[in-house]
């Protein structure tokens, strides 16, 4: 199970402190609102893949708009394992 906290910490790590400390990150946060580049988003997604030992459908991951979408996608893959 991938949690929002895990995802949020990955994102903060990826942005190396450039994200203000008080920025709210939750399921409804839009990926494009955080200022992540496409390279950084993929870094986050594929790090999750590695850590949980699964493969996401990259086309569906690329269509994810919010962090909630991404979590739902990841966890649905984890469930079917």
């Amino acid at each position: 199970m991938i949690t929002i906290d895990e995802l949020a910490s990955l994102i903060r790590q990826e942005m190396r402190g450039k994200l203000p400390k008080d920025t709210q990150i939750d399921e409804n946060t839009r990926l494009d609102s955080l200022g992540l580049s496409s390279l950084q988003v993929s870094e986050v997604v594929f790090t999750l893949e590695d850590e949980h030992g699964v493969e996401f459908d990259p086309a569906r991951a690329a269509n994810a708009q919010t962090l909630g979408d991404l979590l739902a996608l990841g966890n649905s893959v984890l469930e079917t394992r």
Binding site: S37, S38, L39, V41, S42, V45, P58, A59, A61, A62
Partner: peptide, 9 residues
């Protein structure tokens, strides 16, 4: 920008 997630998974 060419989204790497689409072009080079």
């Amino acid at each position: 920008s060419s989204d790497p997630m689409r072009y080079c998974p």
